[in-house]
Design a protein around this nucleic acid. Sequence first.
DNA 1: TATTTTTTATTGACGGATCAATCAACAAAA
DNA 2: TTTTGTTGATTGATCCGTCAATAAAAAATA
Lengths: 196, 196
Amino acid sequence: MPKLGMEPLRRRALIDATISAIGERGSLDVTMSEIAGRAGVSSALAHHYFGAKDELLLATMRHILAELTADMRRALRSTSTARERVSAVVAVNFSDIQFQPETIAAWLAFYVEAQKSAALRRLLKVYARRLHSNLLSGLTGILPRSEADRVAEATAALIDGLYIRRALKDGVPNATTAIALIEDYLETKLSRRSAQ
Amino acid sequence: MPKLGMEPLRRRALIDATISAIGERGSLDVTMSEIAGRAGVSSALAHHYFGAKDELLLATMRHILAELTADMRRALRSTSTARERVSAVVAVNFSDIQFQPETIAAWLAFYVEAQKSAALRRLLKVYARRLHSNLLSGLTGILPRSEADRVAEATAALIDGLYIRRALKDGVPNATTAIALIEDYLETKLSRRSAQ
DNA sequence: TATTTTTTATTGACGGATCAATCAACAAAA
DNA sequence: TTTTGTTGATTGATCCGTCAATAAAAAATA
């Protein structure tokens, strides 16, 4: 009994199913049938709406990035100082929505896949550049350009590193600890400069 | 014309081939035929010596870890102060042998696979714990225990994060920059403490 | 020493399983 | 009657793992 206007609902359901499937298995090695089953439809329908599997995966990554970007914008809107902006960027990456096992596993899996897929690599590069510029926009208000650049690079690396460690359930366990670790780094970096 | 004593040579060749295959493809999605072909043998022989594919992958990871461990021991042997020990641990992770595209891609791929394979996860956990304790053994001579622990955690996360970024050919380009970034972090952390 | 037998090295071919992608067909709304 | 939604069945490709067969070295035996 086909109701009209199913397309956006199915697309969304399939993307959600993709994230949860990848999150559970911990890799992109999930079958179209598995994903479709989770979304409550046949694998043929998944192909109908997304074409090849690659495009479903790409759409999923796009969705994750879009959510992160939206969260970021929202968080940045309610800040006033440069220092606050830096903390906001860090905090968003470890918010309840982002720092979940499923999402992290998906991130990691996509990172690996990006070495194969040029399209995915381009997507991740856009994100990386945006993260960097977001961090920089806060840091340049406090540090000289060259040092701000290095601190932004280190912060981004710390975020990625803590994501990996989370995925392996080793080391840093929760988001609070992760944030504290990065804030500690930023504080020593920033307070030191302001004291000079 | 079968020469005797081939086993260790074939095993080594197959492991090397596995690393280069994974490194080139950027994921563990390499076929036994591909690996065997690179090693100059048939896929049947690879199965003959390693059994299932999982075990070849596991042996490969073990080999990479063993090399890293050996490098680490060698580097630590020629240090005398606690501070030098910390720098040595960092440097080894970015040495010419370790910080190569192939090895890094393999690392990343294994990280992801570890979410599926318990055996692989155990292996990586051993490495993570050893890295932590190596860092700690240097840091506890300079910082109070709790802070040393946090700095070790952050340093490990930085190493992982810089590895990821290297794999994506984004951000930090070379080993020297990566080391400088971590050393800069350590220096601010350590000099600040010693000044108090 | 000459021979048989065992061990080691190696592969081509194949079975069987998995899975992406297609397609014809059906059902209901417009 | 056209459009939209949906699926079961099927095809074709890929790939792991096995097995029987071959070849040569080493060991055992006559």
